[in-house]
Nucleic acid binder design. Structure first.
Length: 657
DNA sequence: GCCGTCACG
DNA sequence: ACGTACGTGACGGCA
């Protein structure tokens, strides 16, 4: 890789303004959307309806006709013609699956179903089309003419485009995101699966049939490469024609256009920018942790009388419950559980489980973070570039992979040492902005509960307030233990609590737990009412939706299996809350991004951790950024209770003031 | 490839 | 009497 990796990323002018989005108006959006699709319920294809809509007998699963373009003038002429239509499906073939390493070896495109073109730069290791020449032709229609791009997982192609030197693109329609919005419970959104599911069992050419094991795409014979690559563009185009009307029909177009698609670029920019990891800090900590692990293991072996693998649940069970005769507690499928809460109980009566508890968390830190994160540092940017998955959750949240930077430890001092190794570049600080109690705030809004709303309107400590209500005492008299109980109950409300779990969590009897819950719902009666109407609606429609009308299908809501049914009921309650909070955070990211562009700042968004945004902020922009971030996040969506954001800054993640 | 476990919100 | 908190990703062990 060369200097084409962007260091400071330039942003295009957003189609977005800072005005808040009015979701009450469904904007007709897909001008090209044709009435070809007839999905009755979400994600459900009705063959007879499709036959009606295609009286000519057009088969959705027909193979397309694909063309190889090797002549530069021909490429120019075809792309210019396509540019007149204003839209095209586009797909890169590259050297790597990792978009931070991938170099283009060719690209495919189409603006018509059953057609496709492939432009090979290299095939069978021979140079064909000069990529630098092709790049300029592409630039003309992607940057200058701003053609609307359709793609499957278009964030990948956008990142490759940017790293290649094409600085901007109009990301119009990601078929993967559309499929996810249409059916967030499906979980599989790769092109092969989507073609099978939505194009009447269309079988795509498998990557593994084209690219031999150990080879890359530039090794593939030209004829095979043309078919494989062109098909990707063709299928993406066909899926676009399928999905656009389904989105319309399900009132998902506005969410798609104004939230999910604008977010693609924001995530791409975050990923490209990455975050710096101070490997020396990690290495210093590694020495310390490794010593402690060795010490603990030595003590355990001494105590037990022999060596064994204490990371093997099976071997550990033997040692604890057979050799040492400790009382087994929870069972799981394979035997007796050695989960942390079990070990903590046993730790009161025996030194071995006590040592194992310490060992567990240190080994976890070492295996998951200390040994892995330094290896994930990009050798050119010297930073860590996570990948945010936009289609990874059923609720609307993001997830983070390779590495997951949404689960970096914070809850204890050892773990926090990992967080402290994430540091800003010279002249910058890290700024963390997080929503205070966003899920309970969302609950107050959705339920309209006057007591809950009042607490947030008065900016009270919600757990203390809850305690004062359920224990019927003045809030100044709430004891820490009572606050802890209230906090657990508040979590329980969000998750759809049961008396059983609450009693376990609090170490109290189940009847005591039941009366806490009863008391809670007596005090927050609108919350109970809200949940009931949510469930009623879900039973009726088989769908739960968020404030932005994001949908999660819950077909099992009326299951005759009571356990399954109550499981789905918890999902319904939690999805409405967690998903709405995720909606708000996405709006906030878009708004803050827009404000940052308006002010033309050097500062960059680095990470999102569900209710928190982390920025790398230029020191001379600190005050401005604090204002922008707070304003953008707090006004992201108008609720009937105030959204509050707390901002901290520091010279590393984890130590913020 | 699944399971148990555990890091986060 | 059942046997249970929601959403993720990643690890090592084991078949």
């Amino acid at each position: 890789m060369d200097s084409s990796i962007p260091t400071g990323i330039e942003f295009e002018t957003s189609r977005f303004t800072t005005e808040s989005i009015d979701f009450s108006k469904a904007v007709p959006f897909f001008e090209k959307a044709k009435a070809t699709s007839l999905i009755a319920a979400i994600g459900e294809v009705r063959p007879e309806a499709i036959a009606k809509a295609h009286p000519g007998g057009i088969k959705k699963n027909e193979k397309g006709v694909y063309t190889c373009i090797t002549d530069v003038d021909e490429l120019k002429s075809i792309l210019r013609t396509i540019a007149l239509s204003g839209i095209m499906a586009f797909d890169f073939e590259t050297t790597h699956i990792d978009d931070m390493k991938a170099e283009p070896v060719g690209f495919s495109f189409t603006n018509e179903r059953n057609k496709g073109y492939y432009v090979p730069f290299i095939a069978e290791n021979k140079d064909i089309v000069d990529p630098l020449v092709a790049k300029e032709i592409l630039r003309e229609i992607i940057v200058d003419k701003k053609i609307k791009l359709i793609g499957q997982n278009i964030k990948y192609d956008y990142k490759v485009l940017k790293r290649w030197g094409i600085e901007d693109a109009y990301l119009y329609f990601d078929t993967m995101i559309a499929a996810w919005l249409i059916d967030s419970a499906e979980g599989i959104y790769n092109l092969d699966h989507l073609a099978d599911k939505y194009l009447d069992g269309y079988r795509t050419i498998a990557y593994s049939d084209v690219v031999e094991k150990g080879q890359i795409f530039s090794d593939v014979p030209l004829d095979k490469a043309v078919d494989y690559a062109s098909e990707d563009a063709d299928i993406a185009y066909r899926l676009y024609e399928e999905f656009a009307p389904i989105l319309e029909k399900n009132n998902l177009s506005t969410l798609f256009e104004t939230v999910e698609m604008p977010l693609v670029k924001i995530l791409a920019h975050m990923e490209l920018h990455g975050i710096f990891l101070d490997c020396e800090r990690i290495e210093a900590f590694n020495g310390e942790v490794t010593n402690r692990i060795v010490e603990i293991e030595k003590k355990v072996y001494e105590e037990v009388g022999h060596e064994f693998n204490m990371n093997s649940p099976k071997q550990l069970q033997e040692v604890l419950f057979e050799e040492r005769g400790l009382p087994a507690q929870k069972k799981n499928k394979t035997g007796f559980s050695t989960a942390i809460e079990v070990l903590e109980k046993l730790a009161l009566i025996d030194v071995v489980p006590r040592l194992i508890v310490q060992n567990r968390s240190l080994v976890k830190l070492k295996n998951t973070y200390i040994d892995v994160l330094p290896e994930m540092v990009n050798e050119h940017t010297h930073r860590i570039h996570t990948s945010f998955t936009q289609t990874g959750t059923a609720t609307g949240r993001l997830s983070s992979r390779n590495p997951n930077l949404q689960n970096i430890p914070i809850k204890n001092d050892d773990g926090r040492r990992i967080r402290e190794a994430f540091t800003p570049q010279e002249g910058y600080l890290l700024l963390s902005a997080d929503y205070a109690q966003i899920e309970l705030v969302v609950l107050a809004h959705l339920s309209g509960d006057p007591t809950l709303k009042e607490a947030f309107n008065n900016n009270e400590d919600i757990h203390t307030r809850t305690a004062s209500l359920i224990f019927d005492i003045h809030k100044d008299l709430v004891m820490p233990e009572q606050r802890r109980i209230a906090k657990t109950i508040n979590f329980g409300v969000i998750y759809g609590m049961s008396a059983f779990r609450l009693s376990n969590e609090l170490g109290i009897s189940r009847s005591d737990a039941s009366s806490f819950i009863e008391n809670y719902f007596k005090r927050f009666s609108f919350v109970k009412g809200f949940m009931n109407s949510l469930l009623e609606e879900a039973r009726e429609t088989k769908v739960v939706h968020t404030i932005l009308k994001r949908k999660r299908p819950v077909p099992q809501i009326n299951s005759s299996n009571k356990m399954e049914q109550s499981g789905v009921e918890r999902i319904v309650v939690n999805t409405a809350i967690q998903g709405s909070a995720a909606d708000i955070m996405k709006l906030a990211m878009i708004k803050v991004d827009s404000l940052m562009k308006q002010h033309n700042v050097k500062s960059r968004l680095s990470l999102q951790v569900h209710d928190e945004l982390i920025f790398e902020v230029a020191k001379d922009e600190l005050e401005l950024m604090k204002e922008i971030v707070q304003e953008g996040m707090e006004s992201a969506y108008h609720l009937s209770v105030p959204l509050r954001v707390s901002i901290e800054t520091g010279s590393c993640w984890g130590e913020m003031h």
